[in-house]
Simulated scan of single mutants.
Amino acid sequence: MWCQPAEIQAISAFQKHFQAKDSDIVVASIPKSGTTWLKALTFAIVNRHRFNISSKNYNNPLLTSNPHDLVPFFEYKVYEKNQVPDLSKLPEPRLFGTHIPFPSLFNSIKESNCKIIYICRNPFDTFVSSWHFSNKIKQGSSPQLTLEEAFEMYCKGIVGFGPFWTHMLGYWKESLETPNKVQFLKYEDLKGDINSHLKSIAKFLDCPFTLEEERQGVIEDIINLCSFKNMKGLEVNKSGKSIKNFDNKNLFSKGEIGDWVNHFSPGMVEKLSIVLEEKLCGSGLWFRPS
Rank of each mutant, 00 (worst) to 15 (best):
W2F: 14
P5L: 11
P5I: 10
I8L: 13
Q9F: 13
I11V: 13
I11R: 04
F14M: 06
F14G: 00
Q15M: 06
K16H: 11
K16L: 09
F18A: 01
F18K: 01
K21D: 07
D22Q: 09
S23A: 11
V26R: 00
K32S: 00
T36N: 02
T36E: 01
L38T: 00
K39Y: 02
I45V: 11
R48D: 05
R50C: 14
R50P: 04
N52W: 09
K56C: 14
K56N: 15
N57P: 06
P61T: 05
L62W: 02
T64E: 08
N66Y: 03
D69W: 06
F74P: 00
V78I: 10
Y79T: 02
Y79H: 04
L87D: 05
P91R: 11
G97C: 10
T98I: 06
K110Q: 06
N113L: 09
N113Q: 14
I116Y: 00
I117R: 00
F127L: 06
V128H: 01
S130L: 07
H132G: 02
S134A: 13
S134T: 12
G140D: 09
G140Y: 07
S142A: 15
E148C: 13
E149G: 12
E152W: 09
Y154T: 07
Y154F: 15
V182M: 03
K186G: 03
E188C: 02
D193L: 08
I194M: 12
H197G: 03
L198P: 01
A202C: 07
A202S: 10
L205T: 06
C207A: 12
E214P: 05
Q216K: 14
I219H: 03
I219A: 03
I223W: 04
S227A: 10
F228N: 02
N230Y: 08
K232T: 06
K232Q: 10
G233R: 09
L234Y: 05
L234M: 08
V236H: 03
K241H: 13
K241P: 05
S242Y: 02
I243T: 05
K249M: 10
L251M: 12
G258Q: 02
D259I: 05
W260L: 04
N262Q: 10
N262M: 07
V269K: 12
S273Q: 14
S273E: 13
E277Q: 15
E277C: 15
S290N: 15
